[in-house]
Design a protein around this nucleic acid. Structure first.
Lengths: 147, 147
DNA sequence: TATTGTTATACTCTATAACTATA
DNA sequence: TATAGTTATAGAGTATAACAATA
């Protein structure tokens, strides 16, 4: 809860917000560039939706905020790459059931491994005190981004 | 400097790196969605290069890792929007000198203001102790991303 | 008649190759 | 001959509209 009197003025809070946003966006950009050739951004995030358990093309399109025809095309491409499998829904003749193949899971793992390796290299040289700060920050930021 | 004995095992460090990367990418993604209709990503980052002082189309293309024709097209669009101005280089008849217009600066400011407003809303409710952690984390992360 | 998904078509961003103008 | 930039053309992702099949 925000106390009535805070050491942080509105200006200081705004400044902190700006700095945090910028540094997060720069980290994100750099991490994304690692192994960027493995999967295009829309392909990666589509695989993530499948990993989360979404299986219907329409649901995935809505989750990714793209049109149904775009998702149709993306899923076709991912099937060509062998990362996604399509089956007919036994309960609804109109619907399709998409799922990750083992190769698709491996592709996700490879991309994440590269990104994580880059980030690990960044924090490698930090002191325990600095790691303590980042460890607490991780928890606060995770809480804050979701609410 | 990394001490010889650390409370952080290699596994704990890897876990921290992964968590930090993920939360930064999620914050980045959400912030980017704020006012996403104002400028496309490639337009925004091109304006940022001009803001940094780059003026030659070729230099900007290299900085953005896109081809010269792509940058040519992007700059034409930004000129149509009134965000960028083009002059001939007086010293080199082949070259062009691009610069931000006041409208271009305003557009950058608007996008950043929306993103910052989103981030400010996220940290608004935090306690002073939590803000202290984030304030220290901001400094550590900024140092770490550049090196 | 509504819903799921694809096909048809067009627009944008990207690239490579070819071109113009200048150094 | 090399460099700066544009034009020509093609490939990929996106959208809307129209369509097929099923509920």
């Amino acid at each position: 809860m925000k106390p009535l009197r805070s050491r942080y003025t509105p200006t200081a809070r705004r400044r902190l917000a700006t700095d945090l946003r910028q540094v997060c966006m720069r980290i994100s950009r750099r991490a994304r560039f690692e192994n960027a050739s493995e999967l295009a951004p829309h392909q990666f995030s589509t695989l993530v939706q499948l990993e989360k358990g979404l299986s219907r093309p329409g649901d995935i399109a809505r989750a990714e905020c793209v049109s149904a025809p775009s998702m149709s095309r993306t899923l076709n491409k991912l099937m060509d790459l062998g990362f996604v499998r399509r089956d007919d829904d036994p309960d609804d003749g109109r619907a399709a059931v998409m799922q990750l193949t083992p190769e698709g899971r491996e592709a996700l793992k490879r991309v994440r491994r590269h990104r994580d390796a880059w980030m690990s290299g960044r924090i490698e040289h930090l002191t325990d005190d600095e790691l303590d700060v980042l460890s607490q920050a991780r928890e606060i930021l995770a809480r804050v981004v979701d609410r």
